[in-house]
Each structure stands twice: as structure tokens, then as C-alpha cells.
């Protein structure tokens, strides 16, 4: 592979990786506080893409505007679902909670198919096909925009987690739920808020996904696999890990699609996923999970 091609893959990989990081952030945040894999996470992102598509087609609302519109909607829905349904179950049985999120994923997939049919869709704006040259490198505008939006949102999340008291409470709950409770953190409330934030991020990522990729109801299975690969490689529950892993895998995916074949590019995620689980189950950034006796 020539240096020029490699540089090109690097650029595309980093730009795509930025959006992957955003999508994975919600998943890893929810896992962090609840210790539950939200199987429906990617289906929620795809739902965001469909809603944005409808807003664009029928009301002419730009997907970037719908990012702003969808965040509060998904935040509210996430809080409602977590508070009303998931929380009650999660305190009883984690296995059942996973099955419930699996059920949510199926419901969303079925609904999307019933409403928008199961054919391929994409959000095609006026600037969808535009690109520019940076030295010798080809930079598609939508990828740059989506990476930019993702970075802004991730930076906001980072600031919130690092500098606010809510952020401290969330981090404490992720580290050790019982200890957090002992020092006075309202872990139930924190869990609900974190879940809602995770879903809100999924909602924000939806329009970006819709601009960059084609999608159909069952695409969420592809995406949940990609996201799990990122989250596992980064260490479950680690936001920083997810960010680094998203970049790495974004680049690896580009390199694979250029050097081997486009068809095989998604496979690189699974190679990493299974490989990491075999070699280092705690991921890159995860600490050794203290076995709950």
C-alpha cells in the first residue's frame, strides 16, 4: 500500500472514527452505570436516522438541525423508558434486562420496517456529494461535518463528566455502585440520567449515520457488532478507551477496504472483537475486573 493511499485511509478512518466514537460513547456509558449491554443501542441510532430522514424529506429540515432536535426527544424517551421499565428490572435480574433491550431492538426494527419499508435509505442533502482537496488528500464534506459534530458533542460529554457534580456522581457510580451509594450518591437517579444521556447521544448520532451511510431496518445488527467491538477493545465502561478504539478501528476498516476488499471491511471489527476477548478480556483501558465473588 502506497504512502499516499495510506494517508488517505488515515484521513477517512479518523473522520469516520469520530462518529463511531460518538455512537459507542452512549453504549459504554450505559454499560458503565448499569453493567448491561444495551442491545437496542444501534437500533435507536438507526431510529434517529429514520426520523431525520422523514424530517428532511417532508419538512426540509437539514439533518444537522435534526441532531439538535432529536437530542431532547431521545433524552426524554430514554429517561422515561429507564425510569419506567428498565430500572425496576435491572435491580432484580441483569439477564432479564439484557433480554428486554433485545426485545426493544426487535420492536424498533419491526416498526421501522412497517413504517419505512425494508429498502435501503440514505439522507441526501445538497452537500452530500461535495468534497475538497487538502494537499493530495480527498476530504468528503459530510464526513468532516459528522466528525466535527461528534467531537463537539463528545467534548461536551467530557466536560460534563469531568467538571460537574453530576459528572462526578456518574463516574463514581461507574467505578463502584455500592461505594457511591454509601457516600450519598443517588445511584438510581444517576443511572436514569446516564441512560437518558446515552440514548440522547444515540439520537444525535442517528442523522450523522444517515448522512454517511445507507441504512435499512436490519442494519442495526451490523452496527451493534461494530460498536461492541469498539467498546470491548476500549474496555467496557471506559469512554476514553472507546474513543481511542473507535479511531483505531475506523482506520483499520479503511485500510482493509482498500487493501483486501470492501465486502470484508466489516469483518475487521469482529476479528478485533473476538481477538480482544480471547487475549485481553478487559480491553485496552479496562482494569482487571474484580470478580464479583
Amino acid at each position: 500500500m502506497s504512502p499516499g493511499l495510506f494517508a488517505q485511509s488515515l484521513v477517512l478512518g479518523v473522520l469516520t472514527g469520530g462518529m463511531y466514537a460518538l455512537m459507542a460513547a452512549g453504549l459504554t456509558l450505559i454499560f458503565g452505570v448499569m453493567k448491561v449491554i444495551n442491545v437496542a443501542h444501534a437500533a435507536m441510532i438507526v431510529m434517529g436516522a429514520y426520523l431525520s430522514l422523514t424530517l428532511f424529506r417532508h419538512l426540509g429540515i437539514d439533518p444537522l438541525v435534526s441532531v439538535v432536535l432529536l437530542v431532547p426527544v431521545f433524552l426524554g424517551l430514554g429517561a422515561l423508558v429507564q425510569w419506567g421499565v428498565v430500572n425496576r428490572l435491572a435491580e432484580r435480574d441483569i439477564t432479564l434486562t439484557v433480554l428486554m433491550t433485545f426485545g426493544f431492538a426487535i420492536i424498533l426494527e419491526g416498526l421501522q420496517g412497517a413504517i419505512w419499508t425494508s429498502s435501503y435509505q440514505g439522507i441526501k442533502t445538497a452537500y452530500s456529494l461535495e468534497s475538497f482537496r487538502l494537499f493530495t488528500l480527498y476530504v468528503p464534506v459530510v464526513r468532516l461535518i459528522s466528525a466535527g459534530v461528534s467531537l463537539v458533542l463528545l467534548a461536551g460529554l467530557y466536560v460534563m463528566l469531568t467538571f460537574t457534580s453530576l459528572g462526578r456522581a456518574i463516574r463514581a457510580t461507574i467505578q463502584n455502585r455500592t461505594a457511591a451509594q454509601l457516600v450519598g450518591v443517588n445511584v438510581r437517579l444517576v443511572t436514569t440520567i446516564s441512560f437518558a444521556i446515552g440514548i440522547a447521544i444515540a439520537g444525535a448520532a442517528g442523522p450523522l449515520l444517515g448522512m454517511l451511510f445507507t441504512f435499512y431496518p436490519a442494519t442495526h445488527w451490523l452496527w451493534i457488532g461494530k460498536l461492541l467491538a469498539i467498546v470491548v477493545l476500549g474496555g467496557l465502561g471506559s469512554l476514553r478507551g472507546a474513543f481511542v478504539a473507535a479511531m483505531l478501528l475506523g482506520i483499520a476498516e479503511q485500510v482493509t477496504s482498500v487493501t483486501i476488499a470492501l465486502d470484508w471491511a466489516p469483518m475487521i471489527f469482529y476479528v478485533f472483537l473476538f481477538g480482544v476477548l480471547v487475549v485481553r478480556p478487559q480491553g485496552l483501558f479496562g482494569t482487571v475486573e474484580r470478580q464479583s465473588l
Binding site: 453493567k35 449491554i37 442491545v39 439484557v98 451493534i224 476477548l277
Partner: peptide
């Protein structure tokens, strides 16, 4: 941990 869910899911 959650590895079994992840592996069977994917």
C-alpha cells in the same frame, strides 16, 4: 462478565 451476551449477539 458480559462476554457471552456480546459473542452470541454478534
Amino acid at each position: 462478565g458480559p462476554a457471552f451476551v456480546i459473542v452470541t449477539l454478534t
